[in-house]
Amino acid sequence: MPLKFFLPALLLTVILAFVSLFVGVRDVSPLDLFAGAADQRDLMVLVASRVPRTVALVLAGSGMAIAGTIMQMLARNRFVEPSTAGTVESAGLGMLTVLLIAPDMPVIAKMLVAAAFSMAGTALFLSILRAIPLRSILMVPLVGIMLGGMISAVTTFFAYRFDLLQSMGAWASGDFSVVLRGRYEILWVAFALTIAAYVAADRFTVAGMGEDFSSNLGLNYRKVMALGLVIVSMVTACVVVTAGVVPFLGLIVPNVVSMIMGDNLRRSLPWIGLCGAALVLVCDIIGRIINAPFEIPVGAVLGIVGSLFFLYLLIGRRNRVA
């Protein structure tokens, strides 16, 4: 990986993170801060809300982008990502289950329940794919979206019956304005998992070449599938529990990076993580300034950007090996 490009990109992301710290309803000026002129309340806002929010954005952004990449390698399809494979919806069902049965669980336990559900949902998705003999490229995300639709229908049904539609609605569109100190730290688990993904990068690349190539190279395909499943589900669950659904990120970023530098994950994963973080930061900043003092949730901004990009992929890459 050419370091001479990576470092500037890293710098740009850091600048974005910095900007993100100082955008918001309350004007906290960086100059005041460094001059020591910032008052106590500014500092409070910064420490309790702005810093957690920015950190959460970075962790969730890179986590979802990397989770998307791994899904694409496992499903061997460019169009899948946690929100087109039933993963996210299953995590939602898990959240609902927690709300119904044990609403006072600590965050980490909530995350684990959500992760267990999303693991089951994603495994179901992957086994459906295995069972479909002739899987055309577009069938795969369609199956995922249908599965996701079915799972969220179940969720909605029970949420409606138990009067929890409101609380379920809150996470349906990723929103980082709710992120406060003490309520986002679980995302460090997602970060640890993305590091694990990087360590295992070559395994995922080989798995992305398919089961036959993997066996030929002596890779235990099932084990790698299971590892990927755990990483994708846990990362998704962490993000869903803290901020809600961040859609399309796992689709846009891996595809753009792959077009430019290919799929050797050892090389591309750092870029994917970085671009994921940068893209969510940008979308979040846009969401905060476009309609200030009100906020548009980052999920909504990404939804728009993402659907356009999805269309572009469908139309623009029709005549390429997808």
């Binding site: 992305g208 290919g262 799929d263 997808a322």
Partner: peptide
Amino acid sequence: HLTARLTVTD
């Protein structure tokens, strides 16, 4: 048939 985009050297 590879879906993963790799270079010849990779």
